[in-house]
């Protein structure tokens, strides 16, 4: 039992090391994904644009739920008018980046892993390598950067949609005064402290999810079972990474 835990820990450390080296290699070969922007645009389409629907709908519903629950709690203290603040702050600081990140990991991250894994299983990567085209530069780097660019945009859209959802419930449905809803929100949501920090978070999550996704895909053993295991691992690892990083970042950013 202890030996199993020990072996697992060592294995994890070892994988982390390999992943760090892979990350270095990836950055080294990233030049081409900007020189040939087309490749990266294509990946933004696949991981960003195709995740739009789920992000927008989830954002709207999360905002609406926040509006309802927040109102329930706040009205006990007679502070309904800070509902806007509550909805906006929780979305911009936490829920936007984190939930968008989790959705992104399971929607786009797993797809990237499966795609790269299958390319490996069917020897497409080996064939590319034999044609003297580096698979890291041609296949991995554009997918990585596509994810890194898409993630903050999705998080912003999630937050904006959520605020709109909160507005729908709070102002349109429940009838809180629209003026105080917005002005309370504006008075306490700070651009640099809240919004910019939220964007920074989502960029970090974008890097984490994309790195895990391309690494797991590249690291499969090239069987159908291996690809499915890698896909699962992408979702699990990157979700845990998001939550862990969120804790670290939050403790740095919002300590004051």
């Amino acid at each position: 039992m202890f030996r199993l835990v020990g072996a697992r820990t060592i294995n994890t450390q070892w994988r982390l090391g390999v992943m760090a080296r892979f990350f270095g290699l990836l950055l080294w070969h990233s030049g081409s994904s900007f020189r040939r922007l087309r490749l990266t645009l294509r990946e933004i389409y696949f991981s960003g644009v195709l995740s739009l629907t789920i992000i927008l709908i989830s954002g709207l519903f999360v905002g609406m739920v926040l509006g309802l629950q927040g109102y329930e709690t706040l009205q006990r203290y007679g502070s309904e008018e800070v509902l806007g603040t509550l909805v906006a702050l929780s979305l911009v600081r936490e829920l936007g980046p984190v939930l968008a990140g989790l959705l992104f990991a399971s929607r786009a991250g797993s797809a990237v892993t499966a795609e790269i894994g299958l390319m490996k299983a069917t020897e497409q990567l080996a064939a590319m390598d034999m044609m003297a085209v580096d698979p890291v530069a041609r296949v991995v780097a554009p997918r990585f950067w596509g994810g890194v660019i898409s993630m903050p945009i999705l998080a912003l859209l999630f937050s904006a949609m959520g605020v709109f959802g909160g507005y729908l419930v709070g102002v349109v449905m429940i009838g809180i005064d629209s003026g105080s809803f917005w002005s309370q929100m504006q008075a306490s949501v700070d651009f640099r402290n809240d919004i910019v920090n939220g964007v920074i978070k989502s960029v970090v999550f974008g890097v984490a999810v994309s790195l895990v996704a391309v690494f797991e895909g590249f690291d499969t053993d090239g069987t159908a079972e291996g690809v499915s295991r890698a896909t699962t691992r992408t979702v699990v690892t990157s979700s845990l990474a998001i939550l862990g990083l969120d804790f670290i970042l939050t403790s740095f950013m919002f300590r004051g």
Binding site: V92, A160, V163, W182, M185, I195
Partner: peptide, 15 residues
């Protein structure tokens, strides 16, 4: 859309 969301958050939600 992303840029619009940022502008919305900055001007309408933020201060």
């Amino acid at each position: 859309l992303g840029a619009l969301a940022l502008v919305f958050l900055a001007l309408k939600v933020g201060n």
